[in-house]
Computed example of a mutant assay.
Amino acid sequence: MASDNPSMKLDPKYDQYDFPTTSPNKQSGHPGHTTPEQDAQVFQLRMKLESAGYTERLDTLTLLRFLRARKFDVDLSEKMFVDCEKWRKEFNLDYLVRNFDYSEKEQVFEYYPQYYHKTDKDGRPVYIEQLGGIDLTAMYKITTSDRMLQNLAVEYEKLADPRLPACSRKAGSLLETCCTIMDLKGVGVGKVSSVYSYVKLASAISQNYYPERLGRLYLINAPWGFSTVFSVVKGWLDPITVEKIHVLGGGYQKELLAQVPAENLPKIFGGTCDCPGGCALSDEGPWTDPEWAKPAKWQEAPAKAEAIDNEAVNQGTIQDGAKSTAAVPTIEDTTDEIKAAPALE
């Protein structure tokens, strides 16, 4: 039984963690709550990947996430991992996370705020997106679709390290997911197509390449009829995923505040937090607190790659195709890879 394994078995060759490794989620397959069969599947997956030439990201926590995402089917998990590594290489991600400069961030956030801000009551990072102000025509005078996706991927890397490790240290147990708030206020019929084109692509990247990162998802200010549509869609989703998603209208504050402390929730959503310079740009959380924060592992050794032109910010649109930076695919190239994206995980 999973409950017979109260702590995770670590392999010193692959598992060098400086944060707790036992999950508070006691469901089977989560770290510290695995069966002997699941431990064997981790070993089998690692051996298959090593024999194929992979040497990075073979630690137990990572492999367990890929295995959970594919119901512990080792072959499907291997394919997912290999596809992810291929994407990372094509996206030049190991170099990007160290060197990407999103200098236009404040301007982009005037239309599309996307940010991590403090923690929920379970200690997880809170991630917030406000979709109502998206104006792709205006935004692509400031940035490109490629750079928006680069920023998205870099932020996912920073979620994995240093954000989640810092939160785990503070909580005293392993935290692998975040609490997401997506504000749909202002997303009317006229904006649906342009918003959907980018959000669909961004969501597919998270599902394909960053599995098992969704803890809770609050869709707030959902427009009329959205709940009806979702009631149909959720029939296609895994029941475990459905439990994580909460569709709320304008009266969302009570339920949201039951999960996120008022002092951690921006005032715009009914909380009391009002960070100097704005919550969206503060990046406040345990990951910036010296008591819990440590340098990310990816900071230890520089990755070699072609230089990224951080000044080329006004080149493309979804309609025309953006001019790619070195080794980074365009939005059209990436779309070909993710047409068969699975449901939320």
Rank of each mutant, 00 (worst) to 15 (best):
A307L: 11
D309K: 04
Y102C: 12
M80H: 04
G29V: 01
K86D: 14
G172D: 12
V260L: 06
K191H: 07
L76V: 03
P165R: 05
W236S: 15
G235M: 12
L214Y: 00
T325S: 11
P6V: 00
I338N: 09
D135A: 13
K118R: 15
C275Y: 02
H33T: 05
L64T: 04
C279T: 09
S282I: 09
S103M: 10
L61T: 04
T55Y: 03
T330W: 02
K105G: 12
D309W: 01
D120W: 01
K200W: 07
M1G: 14
Q107V: 12
K323G: 10
K234T: 00
H117S: 13
A303K: 03
P223W: 00
M148N: 13
R46E: 10
T241W: 05
G225V: 02
D274G: 10
K244Q: 05
S103P: 10
D122S: 15
K158C: 11
S194M: 12
P36C: 06
I128V: 14
A258C: 03
M148L: 15
E243G: 15
D101C: 12
P165A: 01
K71R: 14
Q259D: 15
C178P: 08
K48F: 08
R68A: 04
E300Y: 01
S51D: 15
Q150C: 11
L93P: 10
C279Q: 13
D101A: 11
K121M: 13
P165I: 02
P290H: 11
V195M: 08
R169W: 05
T62A: 08
S231L: 03
Q253R: 15
E37K: 12
P12G: 07
L174H: 06
V126I: 07
V42D: 06
E291W: 01
S51A: 15
G278S: 08
D73C: 10
V42F: 04
I245K: 03
P329H: 01
D309P: 00
T62Y: 01
Y140M: 15
V82C: 11
V108N: 12
G133A: 06
